[in-house]
């Protein structure tokens, strides 16, 4: 027999309150700002969808979005294959397994702003180890504070250094969960290394790779701290990614309305692309 009462709500209430205060209410505040205009003095005027229109038409937003997409897809194109290759090359048993795992985990343990500062100092032409080596030893003119290309290369290399490990660890977890029996069956069939990768390892890693791609997409699409500490969005606006631009509008210019509208558009894009990725990657499982 089933008795019905409302007691269940009591159990949900704490979570509901927590989510309300750390997610829903702040988000609603942003929604509130995005449809109003303010001239200070805590006075607000209804502005409808005006800010959204402005942002979507703004060339500055288009440029930042373009840079953001370029950044995200570049690092995905490097980190995912590289991570899989490293995972494949890692030992499966023995003394070196924990050593490799710890070495892999190290970059991820470093706080984001520290990573940014490290790479900043590392690549500065006069004082940085790499900067000095490139400029004064190899004679390559490399200065990320002056050259957009150098700034981009540094940002991408930094992100690859910081986050490829995540892909490695996920792919490795997928690899070690494949029972030996599969490799034995492949050996008896006489399958080549490529076939083993294509028909056993890759399909078995598919789930973890889906997660790796999603995590890396969301994380890199929302990246702020590392490029901000490294280049501050410069030289000029050449490495001003979406989040850096957003902070400039919100806190630099204190344009609350446009910044709020931009936040919501930003959020919607992240959500939509993540959903698209997930649906595409898992569609043959349904």
């Amino acid at each position: 027999m089933k008795t019905e009462n409302q007691r269940g709500w009591l159990f949900v209430l704490p979570v509901l309150l927590l989510v309300a205060f750390n997610a829903l209410i702040p988000l609603m505040t942003v929604v509130n700002y995005s449809v109003q205009e303010t001239f200070g003095n805590n006075q607000f005027f209804w502005h409808g969808l005006g800010w959204f229109e402005d942002i979507l038409r703004s060339e500055r937003f288009h440029a930042a979005l373009g840079r953001q997409l370029f950044f995200t897809f570049t690092i995905l194109a490097i980190e995912i294959p590289l991570g899989v290759i490293i995972a494949l090359a890692m030992p499966r048993k023995g003394f070196w397994v924990p050593v490799c795992l710890v070495l892999m985990a190290l970059p991820m343990l470093i706080p984001w702003n520290v990573v940014g500062s490290m790479w900043n100092i590392f690549t500065l032409p006069e004082i940085g180890l790499l900067g000095y080596f490139l400029n004064d030893v190899l004679g390559v003119n490399y200065d990320m504070t002056q050259q957009p290309v150098a700034a981009w290369i540094t940002i991408i290399v930094m992100d690859v250094w910081h986050w490829t490990s995540l892909v490695v660890l996920l792919a490795y977890a997928g690899l070690v969960s494949i029972p030996d029996a599969y490799y034995q069956a492949a050996k008896i069939d006489g399958a080549s290394n490529w076939s083993v990768f294509r028909y056993i390892q890759l399909p078995k890693m598919k789930r973890v790779l889906t997660i790796a791609i999603l995590l890396r997409f969301m994380d890199s699409f929302n990246i702020y701290t590392e490029p901000f500490t490294l280049t501050g969005g410069g030289p000029g606006n050449s490495t001003t990614l979406l989040s850096i631009d957003l902070v400039k509008i919100a806190l630099g210019q204190f344009d609350l309305g446009p910044a709020a509208a931009m936040s919501l558009i930003y959020f919607a894009i992240t959500l939509a692309v993540s959903w698209l990725f997930y649906t595409l990657m898992t569609k043959d499982e349904q």
């Binding site: 029972p179 029996a181 069956a185 050996k187 008896i188 006489g190 028909y199 399909p203």
Partner: peptide
């Protein structure tokens, strides 16, 4: 090598190519 021996092996686990 096993592939040169013309043999077949069936395991306790159900080993098939998943996709």
């Amino acid at each position: 090598l096993p592939q040169k021996r013309q043999i077949a092996l069936v395991h306790q686990f159900f080993v098939n190519y998943p996709h």
